[in-house]
């Protein structure tokens, strides 16, 4: 008997949120004109809300036997979800971008000895990340050179595959 593939981290929670959203759609559609005439403004939205609920329930029922994606229960899954979709650099830069977007043009952040322009924090945060990326690229080039020295004559694609296999498992 084949085992169903494990769900992705947060998949069930996302589907439950969509089910909740579908229920909200159905309720909002009902508020437009209730179960009034079949050609009222809310009739077609009601139908759509019902379709969304039914299909999402069928998706969730289909997933009930799929194993959890990570060990450690809900907390482990949450950790895996955050690590996959919200890595620190992405969160940091998103927050800086949103802050910069919301700050009126020409805003300067106050600090003890004067002020700093609003774009300065973003640039300061970018510097160590750029340095880390440069180190990563240099390492990668080193890996490719090592593979080329050991096995000359490989195509670029195979050289890359071998380097990934040897150095990154």
């Amino acid at each position: 008997m084949s085992h169903p593939p494990p769900l992705k981290a947060g998949e069930r929670a996302f589907n439950l949120l969509l089910l909740l959203f579908s229920a909200g759609v159905f309720y909002e559609a009902y508020r437009i004109s209730g179960f009034d005439l079949p050609n009222s403004a809310g009739a077609f939205p009601l139908l759509l809300g019902a379709i969304m609920i039914v299909t999402m329930l069928s998706i969730l029922l289909g997933q009930r036997h799929h194993p959890r994606p990570a060990a450690g229960g809900a907390l482990g899954e949450l950790r895996q979800f955050l690590a996959t979709h919200f890595p620190l650099p992405v969160v940091l830069f998103s927050l800086l971008a949103v802050g910069y977007l919301l700050a009126p043009a020409g805003t300067r952040l106050h600090r003890c000895h004067g002020t700093v322009p609003a774009h300065r924090p973003a640039l300061s945060a970018a510097r160590p990340l750029a340095q880390r990326r440069a180190r990563h690229r240099a390492d990668h080039r080193g890996d490719l050179c090592a593979v080329h020295t050991a096995v000359p004559g490989l195509s670029p694609l195979n050289r890359q595959r071998l380097a990934n296999e040897v150095f990154h498992g």
């Binding site: 579908s22 759609v25 809300g49 379709i51 969304m52 299909t55 999402m56 998706i59």
Partner: peptide, 13 residues
């Protein structure tokens, strides 16, 4: 099919 129909209904909403 369920995912496809759900996505289409979401778009229509």
């Amino acid at each position: 099919l369920s995912r496809g129909i759900f996505a289409a209904a979401l778009g229509a909403v």
